[in-house]
Nucleic acid binder design. Structure first.
Lengths: 341, 341
DNA sequence: ACTCGAAGTTTACGCGCGTCAAAAAATAAT
DNA sequence: ATTATTTTTTGACGCGCGTAAACTTCGAGT
């Protein structure tokens, strides 16, 4: 056991008794060398500490093993969780995920793209900011780098994987109408296509059931959804301007704010007797089970979305050519019944 | 406006009429070339698109401009927020932050260190996992790379920046004792030194005030604090085993779980009449203001911690030598009075 | 033992840039 | 105008590895 640190592949090749090009081949694909050779290398790898210089490797490869992961807002545990799962899968597949957060800001998203591009990534998984995204920039990026969009369907990249908002919103509208007063819809700011689709889905579902849709608009393009839910909620409740005592929020984070508003205003939330209002969300956010009362919502199938996105990206990367058409995969949501509605 | 894409510094040098070594100098430090030269380069930079190949640059520099940022658990918005602020500051200082999350797992932390090391970083900012960290590995890393620890003081790196748990816990224990029944302490799992210091601080503060400390132990080393607060809370409340109707939680995430438990058990939380229990937390977590009732807690001075950490790291990086002693900077917390206690 | 394809070795070049020494040019000071 | 100083240019080397060509060895199968 020497465990001497070896710096260059040249040196490592000589101590392991193999030629450098073969060692190089091994590191690019261990299966590409004969099994006896592989064993000798791996044996040497145990005795000496050596990892190829990542910069030298990437300089000479036309394409690296880097995979960019760009999410719009990492402080949202929904994206943090997605990012975690994506990282895991990429690593397992022998790739090197690099995580960027746009932090809700257009310029940060552009920066992330630029930085990423200079990393010559083999592919990218991107949940765009949405409305504030610089679509031109993203498209230019996606022209050069195989890109799969997820979460927010922004007509970007060669594929999209996300949730079927029409199905999921339909599901919960049905439920709410069946069990009480038809819901009004507390809209999230129209930051991305999800926001818009969910509103449309709500309207469709209500009309299908013969009810009049009622929408609470919120402006701006901030990502502080809880704050909006809280402030706008307090105002609506105190001014008695809520169109219905059942409120469907276009995402859980708004619902969390609205729950706080209801508490602040002394309204009891839930579906039991003695409750003044019902609140439902959408996404099954990691914290929705810890609200008071626990939030009734529709789950997004996180792991399915992640799995399919990564899978699809690998397909595209391996096919080596642009797909003829943009494939969109939508997963269905499931009703998560808790106590708030 | 040609905006032709230029690939190599050689090419860029020739179109801008400057020699390559001078251009190289410019990119390493724009101030190091004469102002007239600088202008000519920057003028060319506007006409042609060129960025130095990051891999070639880093291969030849002994030290890169990379700065590693390692947090234990990115799905915790506390760390997400810290990471965001750190990234911002590093970028502004001309560095390149690379974010890693250990996702609560020892092996992931080790991997992050290894990956980071291969990136030849100029420095690292690290919030260690704590108890489950492989301290030996981290120390070996910190021997080679200037490292500042934050959040959790693990005797790692050349400096530490964090919160003064004794001050902050003292503050809220004082407040709770002054305004009602002395608190028991709902401990977080002893995942890191903060957990241990907060417990000790609680005991000291209680004894100083002449009260008997009562501690609720929770085992394990999971990072799902909310779940612990919820499950253990439900058990304690239903079995009437809470030592006090005032509970100080060692962090806000546990408090969030406990609030849910209290709701589940039909206990009204708050400091007003008609309330069955008081709950307080620690950290002023981004969501603590949205709980029902809003959580009374002690804030950590996020931005001060970030600012000082980064500042200190730059100091160490620039000094170029190991510091003789490990500097620890602690910031004081502030009482954040809301409605839960 | 012989053939032949697969795998390994040798040799050599190139990637794009940092960096150094020496020479040339530009600027500042006398 | 001359000297001293700073800055740039020229030319060259090296970083660590990918990769190609030509050659050699290996191992399974008639």
């Amino acid at each position: 056991m020497e465990h001497r640190k070896i710096q260059t592949m040249e040196d490592f090749a000589s101590v392991s008794g193999i030629s450098r090009p073969t060692v190089s081949k091994y590191f690019n694909d261990p299966e590409s060398v004969r099994s006896t050779t592989r064993e000798r290398i791996e044996h040497a790898l145990k005795r000496y500490e050596y990892t190829p210089n990542i910069f030298a490797v990437n300089q000479n490869r036309r394409l690296t093993k880097n995979i960019g992961v760009i999410v719009p807002y990492l402080a949202d545990p929904f994206f943090a969780e997605m990012a975690r799962m994506i990282e895991r899968r990429c690593i397992d597949a022998g790739y090197w995920p690099i995580l960027f957060s746009s932090h809700g800001q257009r310029q940060m998203e552009i920066n992330a793209l630029e930085t990423l591009r200079s990393l010559k990534p083999a592919g990218a998984l991107m949940a765009p900011l949405g409305r504030t995204s610089d679509l031109e920039e993203i498209r230019k990026f996606a022209d050069d780098v195989p890109t799969v969009a997820f979460d927010s369907n922004q007509e970007i990249g060669e594929a999209f994987v996300g949730s079927d908002n029409f199905q999921s919103i339909g599901l919960i509208v049905d439920y709410l109408c069946r069990t009480g007063e038809p819901p009004c819809f507390f809209e999230m700011p129209p930051v991305n296509p999800n926001a818009i689709k969910r509103r449309k889905a709500y309207i469709e579902a209500m009309e299908r059931l013969g009810h009049t849709p009622e929408i609470i608009h919120v402006g701006g393009h901030s990502w502080e959804f809880e704050l909006m839910g809280l402030e706008e909620g307090k105002r609506l409740i105190s001014e008695r301007k809520l169109p219905s005592n059942t409120v469907l929020c276009s995402n859980d984070r708004i619902a969390i704010g609205l729950l706080a508003a209801a508490y602040d205003q002394g309204l009891r939330v839930g579906r039991g007797p003695g409750c003044a209002m019902r609140i439902a969300g959408h996404d099954d956010h990691p914290w929705s089970r810890y609200t008071c009362p626990p939030l009734t919502t529709v789950s997004q199938d996180y792991s399915a979305i992640v799995e399919r996105s990564v899978e699809k990206l690998f397909e595209i990367m391996n096919s080596g050519c642009k797909a003829e058409s943009r494939e969109e995969t939508l997963f269905e949501g499931k009703l998560v019944l808790r106590l708030s509605a």
